[in-house]
Write a protein that binds this DNA or RNA. Structure first.
Length: 247
DNA sequence: AAATTTTACAACCGCGCAACC
DNA sequence: AGGTTGCGCGGTTGTAAAATT
């Protein structure tokens, strides 16, 4: 049985997102969360497949994403984790919550790969070279560098028998991490409507959009929730880059 | 200044996994 | 138990911008 590609339906738009589409997607998710990516575009009034919406949200539109300007520390973490784990971008991204796996992957291919190779070549030219450092950069190495960032040293300590942490040591994606941590926080604080499963699944949204919110000019053709439910599940946010769309 | 090459990054695609029925 | 579905991951592509010739 062949899986039907989610974008197979003709009429679904592909390619670069327009500001209008972004506005629709952000407004919808702020209000209702992403309860089902496949169905979401219908309700949000978008001619996109769910997968495309998810990608746009996760990699570009969701709040608390840092873009560009990588710090030295961030780059060290990426290089060292990549050396140990290989192309486990989601795992690496989980340790840099404000970065997306896609952006980290891009940054690696555009600049860090070269730098990492240089570092390896420099270390090879020193007396204590190892065979493993000659491996292709995408291959995980069994030898961790001496200058591990603290996050990685912790992992190493957790698995004293194995110098390379297993993937199960990084068992959450960045989104899952948000959801878990925040829903725990929410559950601690009260037993009210915030602990409902829907809210839990989208809890990072509420965390990011504090206080009153309303964009009446955005119309949703259909909504999976009643108006009353909607009032119970959204808060607002006032990030400059989004607010300017509505001025 | 124009043409060409390189770089950066947004977006697409296919696959595997897990949950559900 | 096996089929179906949705989600997330990693590889890859397309293209705009920047750099170079």
């Amino acid at each position: 049985m062949a899986r039907t590609p989610c974008c197979e339906k003709s009429g679904l738009k592909k390619g670069a997102w327009t500001p209008e589409e972004d506005k629709k997607l952000v407004s919808y998710i702020k209000r209702y969360g992403h309860w089902n990516w496949r169905e979401l575009p219908k309700f949000a009034g978008l001619s996109r497949c769910g997968k495309s919406c998810r990608l746009r949200w996760m990699n570009y539109l969701r709040p608390n994403i840092k873009r560009g300007n990588y710090s030295r520390e961030e780059e060290e973490i990426i290089i060292n984790m990549h050396r140990a784990l290989g192309n486990k971008w989601a795992t690496i991204a989980a340790k840099l919550p404000e970065r997306t796996d896609n952006e980290i992957k891009n940054h690696w291919h555009t600049s860090l790969k070269k730098r990492s190779k240089q570092i390896l070549m420099e270390s090879e030219s020193k007396p204590q070279t190892s065979e493993s450092s000659k491996q292709e950069s995408s291959e995980p190495s069994n030898l961790l560098p001496n200058t591990l960032p603290s996050i990685f040293q912790t992992l190493e300590e957790d698995s004293p028998l194995s110098p390379v942490p297993s993937l199960s040591d990084f068992s959450f994606s960045s989104t899952d991490e948000y959801s878990t941590v925040l829903s725990d926080k929410v559950a601690e604080s009260s037993g009210d409507f915030w602990t409902e499963s829907y809210v839990e699944a989208n809890s990072y949204i509420q965390e990011s959009f504090p206080e009153t919110w309303a964009y009446p000019e955005i119309l949703f053709p259909l909504s999976p929730f009643s108006l009353e439910e909607s009032f119970c599940t959204y808060r607002s946010y006032e990030e400059d880059n989004f607010m300017e769309w509505f001025n």
